[in-house]
Design a protein around this nucleic acid. Sequence first.
DNA 1: ACTTTAGCCTGTCGGC
DNA 2: TGCCGACAGGCTAAAG
Length: 270
Amino acid sequence: MPELPEVETSRRGIEPHIVDSTVSRIVVRERRLRWPIARDVDRNLPGQAISSVSRRAKYLLINTPAGSAILHLGMSGSVSIVDRDAPAGIHDHFDIEFDSGLMLRFRDPRRFGSLHWSRDPASHRLLRDLGPEPLGCEFDGNYLWRMSRGRRVSVKQFIMNANIVVGVGNIYASESLYLAGIHPRRAAGRIAAHRYEVLADAIREVLGKAIRAGGTTLRDFYGGDGEAGYFKQQLEAYDREDEPCRRCNEPIAAIVQGQRSTYYCKRCQT
DNA sequence: ACTTTAGCCTGTCGGC
DNA sequence: TGCCGACAGGCTAAAG
């Protein structure tokens, strides 16, 4: 489900409801997520006051003066703010309860999500090697060009590599390359600097637009406030196999790269 | 140091 | 109706 815009939408949906609240307890019903939920989460989170909710890549950070809960939504995870007495459904794996009477509920049918505790999240093993934020100032075409020299991977897999740049998942990779007019199979190391400027701009534009639309709801994504994202209507390539390219009418093609589907226009993308 | 692959899970959808 | 395979928005560890 969630790429950067969906995680950012979730962050904005939950932060106002829990900031300045204090965690009264945490209820874990299922520890077997992508990594088992360690007991130090249960030990450290209760009693802490929430200072902010931030995002790094696709991780949500629930920050307190003593450290942060690091939450990942995996492929099918979502968070919601509900009343403390709301009955738990089958895939509601944990709740973080607050003194306000509300709680943050984590639901994840496929259990690819995760929850960790860290006193210093930036140096946590899951976060420390991540590349720059695509909407931040260290990310630009020159950065992509420098990082890509000598690499033979396809440009699509290159921009989906979180060590290069974070937050570009399968949907927005196709969308960005479409917007930039770059063929997804082209080798990353054989793309000229000026084309990387176009690509970096495209990534920022696509992600920015998607955040403004509240994310992409393909099947079942809802932000923290329960609203469906409506970026799907703006998708140019993703999930549009055989439908006409909106620029040239060529049917959109679908291929597989690294076991993920890629969508692109054979005429517009070179 | 880079690239590729398998695998973690459940739910849904299309074809038979 | 039901069964079966294919596929789904992420990411890591291990192997090559």
